[in-house]
Simulated scan of single mutants.
Amino acid sequence: MDTINNDLTNLLQQMGVHQESLGITQRIVIIAGILIIAFVADYFCRKIVVPTIKKLTARTQATWDDYLFNDAVLDNMCHLIPPIILYVLLPFAFPHEPVTLTFILKLCWVYITAVAMKLICSFLTSLYTISSEHEKLKNHPLKGVYQMIKLIVICVGVIIIVSTLIDKDPVNILTGLGASAAILMLVFKDTIMGLVAGVQLSANDMLRPGDWITMPKYGADGTVIEVTLTTVKVRNWDNTITTVPPYALVSDSFQNWRGMRESGGRRVKRSINIDMNTVRFCTPEQMKKFEKQVWMSGFEK
């Protein structure tokens, strides 16, 4: 670092920069050079690397790479490059000002952590899309599991950001949160219960998206369209949507008509109104008429 600064100082002196403004000019040149390097790296990734990856994924017959390297994932990857370059090269611009350098590096690290969280969440979304189209996994309610993993990633990222801003070890913050675990359990009660219920529903194959279920307690009688951490959405036959807590499907009883559909049968629920005044015994004339109609129909066949 000192060698680079000395070489730059000699170069600026040869260019005629006065000794009084040499330090400021040197810092401006270094900062400008770092920004140019970050801009060029970002431009290179967006204009060359990203199109190349898209062309390679488009040529393959598999579809998983198209989801895995979608626009959201690639865009977040490009967002990571400039702050990483700034984080690595900024010490050259502030060699003798540790307070200013520490403040700027904290901001860079916070930005890097936030973008990394977005990148991981986008990657998990792509994995969910791939698994939802997989033959063996598409019938399992995995959305709640992926949502829980995203929530864990966000919590870890927030802890890292807070620890960076207050200059504390993340382990100490986690230890402090452990003392307030009861409050966290109360705040995230529905989320935790939904995660446990989702694992039980998936492990026991009790519910799949597309199943016809009946749960009179919650007014649900229709097809399951979505299973998340906190709700199970059921589209009733009148196109209304009923939301049921996942843990209610485990703790209470519900009726799943999947077996009937897999057997090839179908239950038809219709109301037939009959006027009791029209119900009577057939007369002999009507009996003869019906016998004649049956005989004529058999003769025609």
Results as ranks from 00 to 15, higher is better:
residue 217 K to H: 01
residue 221 D to P: 04
residue 147 Q to P: 07
residue 202 S to V: 13
residue 154 I to M: 12
residue 221 D to M: 09
residue 215 M to W: 03
residue 237 W to E: 08
residue 226 E to R: 09
residue 242 T to R: 00
residue 226 E to G: 06
residue 228 T to A: 04
residue 206 M to E: 02
residue 155 C to Y: 08
residue 229 L to I: 03
residue 228 T to E: 00
residue 205 D to T: 09
residue 200 Q to M: 10
residue 212 W to S: 10
residue 235 R to S: 04
residue 188 F to T: 07
residue 194 G to T: 06
residue 217 K to D: 05
residue 199 V to Q: 01
residue 233 K to M: 04
residue 147 Q to S: 12
residue 154 I to G: 09
residue 250 V to R: 06
residue 233 K to D: 03
residue 215 M to F: 11
residue 225 I to L: 03
residue 173 I to R: 12
residue 181 A to M: 11
residue 198 G to D: 08
residue 211 D to G: 14
residue 234 V to E: 08
residue 212 W to F: 13
residue 205 D to M: 10
residue 167 D to C: 10
residue 230 T to V: 09
residue 159 I to N: 15
residue 202 S to C: 15
residue 220 A to K: 01
residue 214 T to P: 06
residue 157 G to M: 08
residue 159 I to C: 15
residue 169 D to P: 06
residue 198 G to L: 00
residue 187 V to C: 06
residue 148 M to Y: 11
residue 241 I to Q: 03
residue 200 Q to T: 14
residue 160 I to K: 09
residue 183 I to F: 06
residue 148 M to W: 09
residue 186 L to Y: 05
residue 234 V to D: 10
residue 195 L to S: 07
residue 190 D to F: 10
residue 243 T to Y: 05
residue 208 R to L: 04
residue 200 Q to H: 07
residue 232 V to C: 07
residue 176 G to P: 01
residue 231 T to S: 06
residue 221 D to S: 14
residue 200 Q to V: 15
residue 160 I to L: 14
residue 150 K to T: 07
residue 222 G to L: 05
residue 233 K to W: 01
residue 247 Y to G: 07
residue 151 L to Q: 08
residue 179 A to H: 12
residue 175 T to N: 07
residue 189 K to L: 07
residue 199 V to M: 04
residue 191 T to H: 08
residue 195 L to M: 10
residue 229 L to Y: 01
residue 173 I to A: 14
residue 198 G to H: 01
residue 166 I to A: 14
residue 226 E to N: 11
residue 226 E to I: 10
residue 219 G to S: 05
residue 188 F to S: 07
residue 159 I to R: 15
residue 226 E to V: 14
residue 153 V to Y: 00
residue 206 M to Q: 11
residue 147 Q to A: 14
residue 189 K to C: 03
residue 158 V to L: 14
residue 246 P to V: 11
residue 224 V to I: 07
residue 182 A to W: 04
residue 197 A to Q: 03
residue 179 A to M: 11
residue 203 A to D: 01
residue 198 G to N: 15
residue 225 I to T: 15
residue 176 G to T: 04
residue 219 G to K: 04
residue 160 I to S: 10
residue 202 S to I: 13
residue 208 R to S: 15
residue 152 I to E: 00
residue 239 N to S: 11
residue 193 M to W: 11
residue 250 V to P: 07
residue 185 M to S: 11
residue 203 A to S: 11
residue 167 D to E: 12
residue 164 T to M: 08
residue 196 V to S: 06
residue 248 A to W: 02
residue 165 L to K: 05
residue 200 Q to D: 05
residue 248 A to V: 15
residue 236 N to E: 02
residue 240 T to S: 13
residue 201 L to Q: 03
residue 167 D to N: 15
residue 210 G to C: 11
residue 214 T to A: 14
residue 249 L to T: 10
residue 174 L to G: 06
residue 227 V to W: 00
residue 174 L to N: 03
residue 190 D to S: 15
residue 215 M to N: 03
residue 185 M to F: 10
residue 231 T to G: 02
residue 163 S to Y: 02
residue 157 G to E: 01
residue 221 D to Q: 09
residue 216 P to V: 14
residue 147 Q to E: 15
